[in-house]
């Protein structure tokens, strides 16, 4: 997959999203939480882009914005070079068949009252694709592609009769049944066991080959991203702090936060001899000025004069590898 030559399928430009959160039940004051802060990145056709961050980092929000489950406060989102940010629901509906999503928790994302066939068929019905017999063929085809075999055996099973791995396969089939161009996979395996996760990843990889689909893979795991992704973006508290080729980011992490994430990987996952960056401060500093680097309070390398006052701009430390840190490179 040569991503450099293939066209861009998705671009986020300076996207910001805030949520109002009531601070406490009694005081009624509202606190504004910034889930995404001027985040920009793009994805090439046919690649798997990994958005990596901890819970609350805004990575899921990014996914939801892309599939139009939420709207950004500012910034623009382009699909195939066409802006889709403010399309009203009705105008976006035809595009839905091109942008799909796989949700985190297969126990929650399937309607308990719908059988496997009904769940996977639904997108076809909604978009008026084909007659019943044709739809049935398509469902068989896609269930086979996610390795629920033989597909007919699963038609009239209900979610509660399936294991977690099987449910997630159904959820993937549902997302893939319309032959979308872009699929947002929001931590698709965080509820599953290691051996099952790998099977799910392998399905995604095979679907990419066979159906020429592009994935935005959202995860907290650098190791998973390493396995799956062509390019990676690391996000910290709503700020994108590093992007680059998967291999480059993992072997030469430029941002202290990415380094901290590498440190936190089980040593057993780095073959015991992985390098430690010690990028994390043991105690926390005072939060920086709003304009400062978001990671400064926890950064072992931060410089008070620089990092606490100014937002670090993106710096290219090697071709295609950008880091938002003054001290990188």
């Amino acid at each position: 997959m040569d991503s450099k030559t293939s066209p861009e399928i998705l671009r986020l430009s300076e996207v910001t999203k805030t949520f109002r959160q009531s601070r406490s039940f009694f005081s009624g004051t509202k606190k504004i939480v910034t889930a995404l802060n001027r985040v920009s990145f793009h994805i090439h056709k046919g690649e798997i882009f990994g958005l990596i961050g901890e819970s609350g980092s805004g990575k899921s929000t990014a996914g939801r914005l892309i599939v139009h489950l939420d709207r950004p406060d500012s910034g623009k989102i382009y699909l195939n070079q066409k802006e889709i940010t403010r399309l009203p629901g009705r105008a976006f509906r035809p595009l839905r068949s091109r942008v799909q999503m796989i949700f985190q928790d297969p126990y929650q994302s399937l309607n308990p009252q719908l059988s496997v066939f009904e769940a996977v068929e639904e997108p076809l019905v909604v978009h008026g694709k084909g007659k019943r017999a044709r739809r049935e063929d398509r469902v068989v085809e896609i269930l086979d592609a996610v390795r629920l075999r033989p597909p007919e055996r699963f038609f009239y099973r209900f979610p509660h009769q399936l294991s977690g791995g099987q449910r997630q396969r159904v959820a993937i089939a549902r997302a893939m049944v319309l032959n979308p161009e872009l699929v947002v996979a929001d931590e698709p395996t965080s509820m599953l066991d290691a051996s099952i996760s790998i099977q799910i990843f392998d399905i995604l990889l095979r679907l990419r080959e066979d159906l020429d689909v592009t994935f935005l893979f959202i995860s907290h795991s650098l190791a998973a991203a390493h396995y799956l992704c062509d390019r990676i973006g690391v996000i910290f508290r709503g700020h994108l702090v590093e992007t680059g080729e998967g291999k480059a980011v993992i072997t030469r992490p430029g941002h202290p936060y990415t380094q901290a994430l590498m440190d936190a990987l089980p040593r057993f996952a780095c073959g015991e001899k992985g390098r430690r960056y010690n990028a994390l401060l043991n105690t926390r500093r005072k939060p920086p000025a709003p304009s400062g680097c978001p990671f400064y309070p926890r950064c072992a390398k931060g410089k008070a004069s620089l990092c606490s006052a100014h937002a670090p701009p993106f710096k290219e430390i090697e071709a295609g590898h950008q880091v938002a840190c003054f001290l990188a490179g």
Binding site: R93, S97, Q104, Q113, P123, H127
Partner: peptide
């Protein structure tokens, strides 16, 4: 999330109410 999933699939409000919530 299955309601979100239905929205992503393109289901209309009427469909969501009768097909996903009602049962």
């Amino acid at each position: 999330p299955f309601i979100d999933a239905a929205r992503v699939a393109g289901a209309s409000h009427v469909r969501i109410i009768f097909r996903h919530i009602m049962p």
